[in-house]
Design a protein around this nucleic acid. Structure first.
Lengths: 202, 202
DNA sequence: TCATTGTAAATTGTTAACAGCTATTTTAGT
DNA sequence: ACTAAAATAGCTGTTAACAATTTACAATGA
């Protein structure tokens, strides 16, 4: 089975679209999400929609009140934001340490590809895709180190952090920072990789 | 509305029962959870059951494969376990710092009550309830400091950690450790509270 | 005028039937 | 006896109808 043959459940596609809308700010905090409207919009029944709303609630992007419904969560206050940054760093530092000597040439090729996508999207001023490429880059490392389990935990933290940033906030410096991360990992320099990650995660 | 009047959705009661079964080891890793059987057991249809399975999957207690079903997740390997401990400490240290000077006499009374329940359950050798009292104690602090949002993140980490322990692993030393946490918080000694928490979380 | 009660519309929660997929078993062929 | 294709049983995914709850609004009375 080729990677391109991987089928993505409808539910996951809808979740991805809604996550993107929330992170990008198209759906502002306190926006109410109506199950019927969403069902009509995506051409499915309310069942899968409810699944998605439950998932995004667990991810912290939505809040749900019984018999009332789901709405977009508020942004984090500064002290919570700092805690999220701290936790995200812990996870990615852990990943960097675990990955020492474990990355193949294929892995580095994939990382280079995502860095290129980051740079190109930035030049095209497609900041939504910049954010996605950025997240994909880090996600790749976390996935490689801790599998789906660790990604799930990490993802909650990242998404919640991202809600606090305007999309245009992703700086061009990210290219050089990601470059430094790749180079350190390639040389097996764990300390340098961790330092580069600390720079990049803020 | 009094606190005792709070109604708990069926879905949440079922989730609580299953979480307890998994943490206690009654449901071993790789045990398959059949939706129809669960629906029959709890006297509801498959709808709410699916909600619960989705939630527990997001919490990391279950793993789901599309068109196949949900089964109990494996325990964490040592390196992941250490990361979880690390993250849990970060969250609870954060809580202790935030709570300095914020706790009322009612709060301390509630904490004392949970500590008593911990001790009494231990004497009765009801280790399932010991675990619950332990979790409730810490949960109270996290909730007070960071609200439902922080509890959700924290809970994932705690539940996953707990899967790695046999229920009888909770030591009697926990009583003294919790005592130290309460005392430090009462005196507003943040450093001591953090130290006591570090002792207790392992 | 304001508060309260009653009613209707809208929305979420739940159920049961049906569709589609997976995995096991049966069957046919060598 | 062994392999592979095909039928089958069991389960999950999806749907649409129904039930229960909330919310908004209008009617009522002090």
């Amino acid at each position: 089975m080729r990677a391109s043959d991987k089928i993505v459940p409808i539910r996951e596609q809808i979740a991805e679209k809604l996550r993107s809308d929330i992170i990008s700010g198209d759906l502002a905090p306190d926006t109410k999400l109506n199950e019927q409207h969403l069902a009509a919009r995506f051409g499915v029944s309310r069942g899968p929609i409810r699944d998605v709303l439950l998932q995004l609630t667990k991810e912290g992007l939505l809040v749900r009140k019984t018999n009332v419904g789901a709405s977009v969560n508020k942004t984090l206050d500064p002290s919570m934001q700092q805690l999220m940054i701290d936790i995200r760093r812990r996870i990615e530092f852990h990943a960097a340490r675990q990955l020492k000597g474990k990355l193949t040439e294929d892995d580095f090729e994939a990382l280079e590809g995502m860095l290129n996508r980051f740079k190109e999207s930035f030049e095209k001023e497609d900041y939504t895709d910049v954010t996605k490429a950025d997240i994909d880059f880090h996600k790749y490392l976390v996935e490689k180190a801790g599998g789906e389990e660790l990604v799930n935990l990490w993802y909650v933290v990242v998404l919640r952090m991202r809600m606090n940033y305007k999309r245009i906030d992703t700086p061009i410096a990210g290219v050089a920072e990601h470059r430094a991360i790749i180079d350190a990992l390639r040389k097996g320099q764990t300390r340098e990789a961790v330092a580069a990650l600390r720079e990049n995660i803020r």
